[in-house]
Design a protein around this nucleic acid. Sequence first.
DNA 1: TCATGATTTGACCATATGGTCAAACTGACG
DNA 2: CGTCAGTTTGACCATATGGTCAAATCATGA
Lengths: 229, 229
Amino acid sequence: MQVPEKNANALGNEYRRPKIEQVHTMSKPETRIQQRNRAAILSAGLEIFSQYGLRGSTLDQIAESAGLSKPNLLYYFRSKDAIYTALLERLLDTWLDPLEKMDPNGDPIQEILAYVHRKLAMSKDYPRESRLFANEILQGAPHIADHLSQDLRQLVDEKAVVIKEWEAAGKIAPVDPYHLVFSIWAMTQHYADFDVQVRAVLGETDPFDGAMTYLDTLFRRMLTPKADV
Amino acid sequence: MQVPEKNANALGNEYRRPKIEQVHTMSKPETRIQQRNRAAILSAGLEIFSQYGLRGSTLDQIAESAGLSKPNLLYYFRSKDAIYTALLERLLDTWLDPLEKMDPNGDPIQEILAYVHRKLAMSKDYPRESRLFANEILQGAPHIADHLSQDLRQLVDEKAVVIKEWEAAGKIAPVDPYHLVFSIWAMTQHYADFDVQVRAVLGETDPFDGAMTYLDTLFRRMLTPKADV
DNA sequence: TCATGATTTGACCATATGGTCAAACTGACG
DNA sequence: CGTCAGTTTGACCATATGGTCAAATCATGA
């Protein structure tokens, strides 16, 4: 499966024959070892990539962190890039999930606050994922540009409609729904991505306690419709 | 090499024969050529580093962007790191400036909004600087950790007091001043650092117009004290 | 014009790094 | 036990990259 690649395909190296990808595509079940090692590699990749970025990370680092040899890594993933890409793709779902969960039929302010809550929890519980993502976007999102203008955009468009409906129903004060979403992303992810800076300023104080309170207050005040309307 | 991150790289500068540093330190005036080339190098460095990060950028890239040969680069800066560090240090002042300008004697809400405005303008006009900074923080701020817990922290502490006084005077609604500052950083810098994402979602629409309106509304609603107080 | 220091560069080096490969090893199963 | 797909690795390679250096070129002021 992955070995029988017959490197004889000395044709263009444009697109290499995926050794492993076929395991997925061609419906061969993963062995226990494969599962374990792939998981270990992705975990190690997350750790390293989130810290040093794609170009700043080396296969040796990842290999060591995964407890495997470098050639062994490349037995499971065709290249460094493949590990990175696999991570990003897996991450994207996780990333959109909290927004997807926002329920059009729930109480508007509660729904938005719950979304903020979920996002902040992600920053707290998955800071490496957040940083990996941030790094990718910072570099111009070369690996996920499509996803952004497809899936992400579509989802946000969809939720923007919902928010506008809430506004029309007088359930929340008027706001630009897109910038509302941006501000939620910005403020919640800030606590993961800029963690060192936040902690440098706050000292010993834990950022997340105060953050939740603050964000709650912020969005409540901004979104609560004026009483007289 | 990047993991080992041996001795605090700030210290490692001692043992080398600084060709250029002496020009600075030893009070020798800069020649016109020096000024021009140093400026070109810093400009090129900003361009490249902000796009690929420290490790992701190469001297050759910077050299080409600066229109100089690689050895010539190293005639003006002792190392790649030296260029990066020089950039960061120059950037720090610029970065703190908008907050410093916040006037304790001005009208509270106006002052805060003006600060937001200045920060957003910086994201718009100096996105490369913003990204360079973001990248450094994301990596754990290895080159400016000190500055953060010194200068930055002190400045924020100082302004936090001012904000608390405004609050005590009933000029603004109660808020945690630290998280208020964080939220301003987060939301304004988001438009520079996550530019691709924002644009992927907004399509053709210019982000900054809507952003200013939105942020203005947001902070006004959050900070305006309740009428009945 | 010439001397002298500043500037520039081609050639070069050591190391790091992504990736390859053939050979060796392992484990599950008939 | 034997087999063979699946797994692992030591040795190796090509290239990229940060950095050095001696020699050449240039600029400027006496």
